[in-house]
C-alpha cells in the first residue's frame, strides 16, 4: 500500500510539472503577449520594445522556459505580470478560495446526490421518475447557466448576495458573511454534480439489486430495505467512488465560469485573467495548482474505491 501511494505521489509530481510546463509554453506561444494586451492596439514600436525588455518578453520562448525551470527548482514560480506579485503568493490565496467552494460543493452534491440516487434506484413510481427527470435536466445544464439563473434569482429576490466573497460593509473576518456569499456559487457548482451522482448511484444500485446475491439475501427473509441499505449500497458505491477524482476535475473547470459570474476571487478567475493577459507564469502556476487538486482528487477517489471494494486493494 505504501509503495502504491509513493508511486501515485511520484506520478502526481510528474503530472503537475508536465501540465504547468505545457501551460507556460502554450501561453507563451499564443498570439499576442502581455505588452499587446496591456498597452493596447496603438503604441509605438519603441515603447512596446521597452516594455518587452522590462517584462523579459524580449527573450525567446525557450529562454523564458529555461529561466522558469531554474526558478522552479528553487521553488520560485516567477512573478505575475498582471498582478505584479510572486505567483507563489498569489496562487495559494486564490486556490484556498476555490478549494472552499469545491469542498462545499462536493459535500453538498454528495449529501443530495447519493440519497436521491439510492431512492430512485431502488424505487419505482412518480416521485422516483421526477427525481430522475430533474437529474437529467440538471446534468445537461452547464454551470454557467446554473450560476446565471441563481444570480438572477438572487438579484430578483434580494435574499442572497449576488456576487463577491464578502460584503463591503461587513467585517472582513465574518464567517457568516462569507457563508452567505458562498450559497450561490456552491449551489451552482453542486447541482450538476449532485445530479451526476444521483444518476450514477441510481444506475449502479438498480444494477446491483438485480444481482443473484441480492435475490439470495431476500430469499433468506432479510427485509428489502435492509438489503438495499446494507448489502446492495456497498457494492453500488464502487462506480460512484471511482468518479470522485473526475468530479474534482469538473469542479475546477466549472468553477472557472462560476467564479466569473459570481465574482468569487478563486483560482479559475485568476487563471482566466492570466490567460487573457498572456501572463505565462501565472497561467503555469494556476495550472499547477489545478493539477494538484486533480491529483489529490484522484488519490481520494482511489482511497474511497479501496475502502468500499477490498478487491481493489490487492
Amino acid at each position: 500500500m505504501r509503495q502504491y501511494i509513493a508511486r501515485r505521489l511520484a506520478f502526481s509530481v510528474l503530472l503537475v510539472f508536465v501540465v504547468s510546463s505545457v501551460s507556460l509554453l502554450l501561453a507563451s506561444v499564443a498570439p499576442g503577449d502581455f505588452v499587446t494586451e496591456s498597452l493596447g492596439a496603438v503604441v509605438s514600436p519603441e515603447t512596446a520594445a521597452r516594455a518587452r525588455v522590462r517584462y523579459g518578453l524580449d527573450q525567446s520562448v525557450g529562454e523564458q522556459y529555461g529561466r522558469w525551470l531554474i526558478r522552479v527548482a528553487r521553488f520560485d514560480f516567477g512573478r505575475s505580470l498582471v498582478y505584479d506579485r510572486p505567483v507563489a503568493d498569489l496562487v495559494p490565496e486564490r486556490a484556498a478560495n476555490t478549494a472552499l467552494l469545491a469542498l462545499a460543493a462536493l459535500i453538498l452534491s454528495t449529501v443530495i446526490g447519493l440519497p436521491l440516487g439510492i431512492f430512485s434506484g431502488s424505487r419505482r413510481g412518480i416521485v422516483a421518475a421526477i427525481v430522475r427527470g430533474a437529474s437529467v435536466a440538471l446534468v445537461s445544464m452547464p454551470p454557467l447557466l446554473t450560476s446565471l439563473v441563481l444570480v438572477f434569482l438572487a438579484a430578483r429576490t434580494g435574499w442572497l448576495p449576488i456576487g463577491g466573497m464578502r460584503s463591503s460593509t461587513a467585517d472582513s473576518t465574518s464567517v457568516i458573511d462569507v457563508l452567505k456569499h458562498m450559497i450561490v456559487p456552491v449551489v451552482a457548482l453542486a447541482l450538476p454534480i449532485a445530479a451526476t451522482f444521483e444518476r450514477l448511484q441510481s444506475q449502479a444500485l438498480a444494477d446491483t439489486v438485480r444481482q443473484p446475491f441480492v435475490a439470495a439475501t431476500l430469499a433468506r427473509g432479510v427485509s428489502a430495505q435492509r438489503v438495499v441499505w446494507r448489502d446492495a449500497l456497498k457494492a453500488a458505491l464502487v462506480p460512484v467512488a471511482s468518479m470522485y477524482g473526475l468530479v474534482v476535475g469538473s469542479l475546477l473547470s466549472g468553477s472557472f465560469v462560476v467564479e466569473m459570474v459570481t465574482a468569487w476571487p478563486g483560482l479559475g478567475r485568476l487563471m482566466l485573467d492570466g490567460l487573457r493577459a498572456r501572463d505565462a507564469y501565472l497561467v503555469a502556476g494556476c495550472a499547477a495548482a489545478g493539477t494538484v487538486f486533480l491529483a489529490l482528487g484522484t488519490l481520494v477517489s482511489d482511497a474511497a474505491v479501496a475502502f468500499v471494494d477490498p478487491r481493489s486493494r490487492q
Partner: peptide, 20 residues
C-alpha cells in the same frame, strides 16, 4: 466609494438592477 471587481458584465447589470 466602494469599487467592486465583478468580471462578468451580466452579473454587473444584475447587481445594478438589484441596487447592489
Amino acid at each position: 466609494i466602494v469599487v467592486e471587481i465583478v468580471p462578468d458584465q451580466d452579473a454587473q447589470v444584475l447587481k445594478l438592477e438589484a441596487g447592489d
